[in-house]
């Protein structure tokens, strides 16, 4: 026992000093925990949490972007199909309109033709009539000259008409 005590004192083991060192270390441990590790570990955890969160968010954003792109492409495809349809429709409409216009024009032309044909007919009849009258007058004049006798113009004309009727020359219509 004495040997151990001597060894201790020889090495410098000193109970009050040992206790002082224990107290010092305990104090250091407690203070380091309270003012150091606790905060620093909390900060490290917070940072790793944030990093994880932001990475998750980035992943989400990426997925969303991909989704949006797909949707966009879909929309574009739809729009293209729609525009194609509209163009087709418009072309059809144009075709129809053209056809209608052509029909209209043809009808117009027909009616114009008909009308002008009627006019021509009328003109012809009128000129025939005028001609006939003229001819009657001439004939009367000629007859007057021939018979040298002034007949009643009116009765002569009637007579001539009758003659012409009978002869069938220049039949009306």
């Amino acid at each position: 026992m004495e040997a151990i005590t001597r060894l201790f004192t020889e090495l410098g083991i000193n109970p009050p000093l040992l206790i002082a060192q224990l107290v010092n270390f305990s104090l250091l441990l407690v203070l380091m925990y309270l003012f150091g590790y606790k905060k620093i570990l909390a900060m490290l955890d917070e940072r790793s949490r944030r990093v994880k969160e932001s990475m998750d968010r980035a992943e989400e954003v990426k997925i969303q972007a991909a989704k949006a792109e797909t949707a966009f492409k879909e929309k574009v495809g739809e729009a293209r199909a729609e525009s194609q349809a509209i163009i087709k429709q418009a072309a059809q409409l144009g075709e129809t309109l053209k056809e209608e216009a052509r029909q209209e024009a043809r009808k117009e032309a027909q009616s114009l033709l008909d009308r002008s044909r009627g006019e021509i007919q009328k003109e012809r009849d009128e000129s025939i009539n005028a001609l006939r009258r003229e001819f009657a007058d001439i004939a009367i004049l000629a007859a007057e000259k021939v018979i040298e006798e002034r007949l009643d113009k009116e009765s002569n004309k009637k007579l001539l008409d009758k003659v012409l009727e009978e002869s069938g020359w220049l039949k009306k219509e």
Binding site: N24, L27, L28, L31, M32, F35, G36, Y37, K39, I40, M43, E46, R47, R50
Partner: peptide
């Protein structure tokens, strides 16, 4: 004691104003 004070100073100062 000097070591204790040094460590506490370094860690205390560093942990006092922490930022992300």
């Amino acid at each position: 004691l000097l070591t204790t004070v040094t460590l506490l100073l370094i860690f205390g100062l560093a942990a006092r104003k922490m930022s992300i």
